[in-house]
Amino acid sequence: MIVMDFQTASFLTAGILIVIGLYGVFFVDNIIKKIIALEILGSGVNLTLISICYNKYIPIKLPNMVNFAQYSAYPLTQALVLTNIVIEASMLAIMLGVSIILYKKYKTLKCSVILKED
């Protein structure tokens, strides 16, 4: 049985999410599903960012402030994730808006129809 520590497992999960997202973007022929796949891809990247915060000294009890730096989870990438979530959400909002309009035109969500090059 393979034993891996928590952080590596977390990175593995993130990698799998990224691959699932990429699969969805390139191989699924439905605009909404593509957008959902983009969300999954983004979550994978966010999980990678979050996993960097992991500090293996996380204690059960709060330590005194002197040793705080040694015990606390790293805060930098947590803040970056908050930023990235908003960025993704706004991109997706624009894409959903355009897909509403193209759906109204073609009455279908198939990418092969609505995004066909002329």
């Binding site: 990175f11 593995l12 990698g15 691959v19 990678t48």
Partner: peptide, 11 residues
Amino acid sequence: GANIIYYLMQI
């Protein structure tokens, strides 16, 4: 995909 997963686990 395989590369991404492999290298992410090396971090």
